[in-house]
Design a protein around this nucleic acid. Structure first.
Length: 438
RNA sequence: GCCCUGGUGGUGUAGCCCGGUCUAACAUGCAGGCCUGUCGAGCCUGCGCCUCGGGUUCAAAUCCCGGCCAGGGCGCCA
């Protein structure tokens, strides 16, 4: 079938703006073809757009033959423009429908579709991700990304209201920033470079100039993890604040997460309903338990973690059961946190680091940073890192003020807000150990 | 990387334990037909599937081994 041109035809109304009040008016709607029905003497199809849907109705006796033939050619999920007359009709969905005067078939979907976009037959996640463009048209997928968008908007608004400046740091870098996570090498002309695993060092440098900065951007981790909560490309919300300590930025984080929950609950009621998720806003203040207390509570629950070790996944899950909701774990052993975290003055075995957990899932981590060059070099060495490879950063860190910050995983936050249990569902086109396409 | 579970039409499942009755079932889909008010429409006709390789056996979707792929649990990591 030959496709039609969009030409200078433009949409006059979104589907949901077509109401019985517009009866008699001529409108142009554009969208994708949903359910189609041919009752012999009358044909219907649903046209869906980002706002919702409207029914296009073509009674055989009153509709041009060529138009009727065109409707027969339409396949589900094809892209169409319909110019037509609005008619109030009791029998129609929402009491209104459009009688077509002109139909432009802008693109035709091939059949059969790789999955059912109406979701009556559930598809596996793998199938869905292979056909992600189509999968994203499902109401559940749409709901997830509307919630993600709403959460990010709430977060941005909050940070901007607190005088933060939004920045963008390089994603192609020369050195690692964290001690642990592996890096993806990229070829940079005749040199080796890496994809950035965190904006850490850059945002710290920027506190010297802008004082309060935040960035929303991709981070890349070359870890071979294969779990429902890890990705090799993730979106991180990072902040860094001059003249502040861990406690100060925890307060910011708490308020910001609280607002994200509240805004989503308020503005995404429909989306939460689609997902069948009852969102509970965590109570403020979020509990703050120390690493030592966490270990004690775990031991009482029959799960012993040796002091000085990071919490293994089962321990995180158990702690999530014990504490529930959103909570901080603070005062971590210095040895298991990165070199840029400030050790505690009264007990250098502990440092001013914190993790924000939601149930068993780590959403964010941060801390008071080391702003003095000598200590930074000392800690680099202690972690077995070579200060020379951080030379350009150290030079740029000249006389930065004392500062603190955190990084929050937007994908994981979206999991919690939507109640979805695989992070892949919260990312448009996820990158994991095995998936590099689409 | 390790452990567990699985892989059946386009999609989602049943069948597998206990081999033959499977010419593989159901739903959805797709193609065509009937119907002037459908809205998860209904009815009729048709289409389409056992992950790959090897083995056991008279006989394999079914049992065994290996590969590949997926889901979950870990590890690593945020």
């Amino acid at each position: 079938m030959k496709l039609d041109e969009l030409g200078n035809l433009r949409r006059t109304n979104l589907s949901t703006q077509i109401t019985p009040k517009l009866a008699g008016k001529e409108v142009v709607v554009m969208g994708r073809v949903g359910d189609a029905r041919d009752l012999g003497g009358i044909k219907f199809f649903i046209l869906s757009d980002i706002a919702g849907a409207v029914q296009i109705t073509a009674p055989k006796a009153k509709t041009d033959k060529k138009l009727l033939a065109k409707i027969d050619e339409l396949t589900k999920e094809s892209s169409v423009a319909v110019k037509g007359k609005v008619v109030a009709a009791k029998q129609a969905p929402r009491g209104v429908e459009v009688l077509p005067l002109e139909i432009r078939v802008l693109n035709l979907a091939s059949t059969p579709l790789p999955l059912d976009p109406r979701g009556r037959v559930k598809a596996n996640l793998d199938t869905r991700l292979d056909a992600r463009g189509l999968d994203l048209r499902r109401s559940e997928s749409l709901a997830i990304f509307k919630i993600r968008h709403q959460a990010l908007q709430a977060i941005r608004e909050h940070l901007l209201s607190q005088d933060f400046i939004e920045v963008q740091t390089p994603k192609i870098v020369a050195t690692a920033t964290e001690s642990g996570a592996a890096l993806f090498p990229v070829s940079y002309f005749d040199r080796e470079a890496f994809l950035s695993q965190s904006p850490q060092l850059y945002k710290e440098v920027l506190t010297g100039a802008f004082e309060r900065v935040f960035e929303v951007g991709p981070i890349f981790r070359a870890e071979e993890h294969d779990t429902p909560r890890h990705l090799n490309e993730a979106t991180s919300i990072d902040i860094e604040v001059a003249y502040a300590t861990a406690d100060d930025v925890m307060d910011i984080l708490e308020e910001l997460v609280y607002r994200a929950f509240n805004e989503v609950k308020k503005k995404c009621a429909e989306e939460l309903k689609v997902l069948g998720h009852k969102l509970e806003v965590p109570k403020k203040p979020f509990p703050r338990l120390t690493y030592d207390e966490a270990l004690k509570r775990l031991e009482r629950a029959g799960l012993k973690v040796p002091w000085g070790e990071d919490l293994p996944t089962p321990a995180e899950k158990k702690l999530g059961e014990l504490v529930g909701g959103a909570y901080f774990v603070v005062d971590w052993p210095t040895a298991i946190k990165p070199f840029y975290i400030l050790p505690k003055k009264d007990n250098p075995k502990l440092c001013a680091a914190f993790d924000l957990m939601f149930k068993g899932l780590e959403l964010a981590s941060g801390g008071t940073r080391v702003h003095q060059k000598e200590l930074l070099v000392k800690q680099l060495k202690q972690k077995g890192l070579n200060p020379e490879s951080f030379e350009s950063h150290l030079k740029n860190m000249m006389a930065v003020p004392p500062h603190a910050g955190w990084g929050l995983g937007l994908d994981r936050l979206t999991m919690v807000l939507t109640g979805v249990d695989n992070v892949r569902e919260c990312v448009l086109f996820p990158r994991d150990r095995k998936r590099l396409t689409p």
